[in-house]
């Protein structure tokens, strides 16, 4: 077993929270040329081959793979404001190691969708680098729809300069090992980082979610809002950290995770971490898990909705509030349909 996705600060060893463990053999894959993808972009967006090596902070082992065995490497540069949505769809029909470096130039703004889906049980090791220069804005939606016995390791690194805003939406429908790492740095003053995330775990899925926002700039904002839906024997380990560094005056930050457990056998581990080295900040975090409110259920049932439907409806209501942050209506509807399917397969 190897340890990946180390938590930003270590705490008691006994609960398996500091690392995510995987079998090293999982990494032994053959990576052929990867061609089953589609890119849609307009002229303002340059999509080019990537000429540098980018490390993968998830673990040494995965980093070596990203640097030496990547079978999809691109650099995408948004020079100006692009009205159209740039879209990359990966049909993960063979093992994929992708490295994508995205730069949003000064004053540019962009919308981007990355979709990963597989019909077979597949291996994916992805690195996504996001750089926002000054006064830039990027809206990005990342969708993981992998077949249930897949292994999905994703590492996202973002750097945000003055006055720039990054909005990320991540939806993960879960798989055998689904591990996400996101490390953001708010380097610039008045920069904004907003992360919304939904992840599902069913069967024997094992989810490792590790989000970190390092706050250096003044008057910045960090929002990290996650909803988790667990069923079957799924296990989930969430670590969400905001680290206010000394000097990050007038910054605000809020991390929250809400976990819905549909089965008695699911297991939730949640560690929302708040690190604070600056007096003049406003930091908050929360984590909750609980039964669906009995009064809400009764109200729904008096309107003729069965208990199971009412539970589904209430979950969808919770999710839809978050989903409204997705800029593309078509994608939003597609995701809602997939969620509907997912909830129906649960029950």
């Amino acid at each position: 077993m190897i340890k990946i996705n180390k938590s930003p600060v270590l705490t008691s060893q006994n609960y398996g929270i500091n690392y995510f463990e995987i079998d090293e053999k999982l990494l032994n894959q053959k990576f052929d040329k990867f061609e089953t993808y589609k890119i849609k972009n307009d002229q303002n967006v340059k999509v080019e081959a990537l000429n540098k090596k980018i490390s993968n902070p998830m673990s040494n082992e995965l980093s070596i793979q990203s640097q030496n065995q990547a079978n999809f490497q691109k650099q995408i540069v948004f020079e100006n404001t692009s009205k159209d949505i740039t879209n990359i769809k990966f049909d993960v029909s063979r093992p994929l190691v992708d490295v994508i470096d995205i730069v949003v130039k000064k004053d540019a703004s962009a919308k981007l969708i990355l979709e990963y889906s597989s019909n077979e049980n597949m291996y994916h090791n992805g690195v996504l680098n996001l750089t926002l220069e000054k006064d830039a804005e990027l809206d990005i939606v990342i969708l993981y729809n992998m077949k249930n016995s897949s292994n999905n390791f994703v590492s996202i690194n973002s750097n945000i300069d003055n006055n720039s805003q990054l909005n990320i939406f991540i939806i993960d429908f879960g798989c055998q090992n689904s591990v996400q790492r996101l490390e953001n740095s708010l380097n610039g003053d008045y920069s904004v980082f907003s992360l919304n995330s939904i992840y599902f775990g069913s069967n024997t899925d094992n989810l490792g979610i590790n989000y970190l926002s390092n706050v250096f700039g003044k008057s910045t904002q960090t929002y990290m809002n996650s909803i988790c839906v667990l069923d079957g024997h799924a296990k989930k380990n969430f670590v969400g950290t905001i680290d206010f560094k000394q000097g990050s005056k007038k910054s605000v930050g809020d991390v929250s995770e809400n976990c819905i457990m549909l089965s008695k056998t699911a297991k939730s581990l949640s560690t929302p971490i708040l690190l604070c080295g600056e007096e003049d900040v406003d930091g908050k975090h929360s984590s909750s898990l609980g039964k669906i409110d009995e009064d809400e259920l009764f109200y729904m049932m008096t309107r003729g909705i069965s208990k199971q439907d009412a539970i589904k409806l209430l979950i969808k209501a919770k999710l839809s509030k978050l989903l409204n942050n997705i800029f593309d209506e078509q994608l939003r509807e597609k995701i809602k349909e997939r969620i509907e399917d997912k909830l129906n397969e649960h029950r």
């Binding site: 409110d293 009064d295 809400e296 009764f298 109200y299 729904m300 049932m301 008096t302 309107r303 003729g304 909705i305 069965s306 208990k307 439907d309 009412a310 409806l313 209430l314 969808k316 209501a317 919770k318 999710l319 839809s320 509030k321």
Partner: peptide, 23 residues
């Protein structure tokens, strides 16, 4: 159960109905 009763054609109004975000 409440939903069965509702399906038969009974409705009840609440003084303080619960609020549900997202729907």
């Amino acid at each position: 159960k409440p939903d069965e009763i509702a399906k038969l054609g009974v409705f009840m109004s609440f003084q303080n109905p619960v609020s549900v975000e997202g729907i």
